[in-house]
Amino acid sequence: MKPIIRLVDVWKTYEMGDIEVHALQGLNLEVKEGEFLAIQGPSGSGKSTAMNLIGCLDIPSKGHVYLDNHDIAKLSESDLAQIRGRKIGFIFQQFNLINTLTAMENVMLPMMFQGIDERERFLRAKKLLELVDLGERMDHKPKELSGGQQQRVAIARSLSVDPDVILGDEPTGNLDSKTGLSVMDFLKKLQKEGKTIVLVTHDDNVARQAQRVVYIRDGKQVEKVK
């Protein structure tokens, strides 16, 4: 399978006052099309930074990040936004829904930024909310939904633009184990339908369900030390 995302000798340096913090120190990583990959590491290992780069939320200080063989470090902010809006669906630990909008509006929002027309947005959002079993709760605001339901809205939102990659940052971290399992099952189902799934987690149980696990420590990929 060909790689959809490639990180080549990626460095990410933050300046905290006078101190330079190297969050990533020459990370090399490949995400193959259609795989279910888990990136695992302790907190402070740089896995979140890696996720930001994979998700085109940030650009590297040094090195290259290729998405579909385009180096994102060379893109303008606008193009970057457009690419992540089209290619990547995010699922966050905190769900990150917009609280003033209903479930339906939240799912429709990414499509708005892609210029999809209103009717199409509505139909797709409705279908996706039904798919995640929230057909009855489309007009509810996030605060009126349980954690599991909110995460399902977030999954529906991530799927709304039909992205190639679903990127999850501890997507089950705020859910009880049963709800967490059903979210994982749903992600596996998506992979079977052809999506590429990348999860960032520190949780062995989550990582174990992936096809492949990459370990990060001190900003570098390491062999598993266990």
């Binding site: 606008s78 457009q82 992540r84 990150n96 929002l109 930024f113």
Partner: peptide
């Protein structure tokens, strides 16, 4: 969030 889901500046 809006930027993450594709909003341009």
């Amino acid at each position: 969030i809006m930027k993450a889901i594709g909003a341009r500046n």
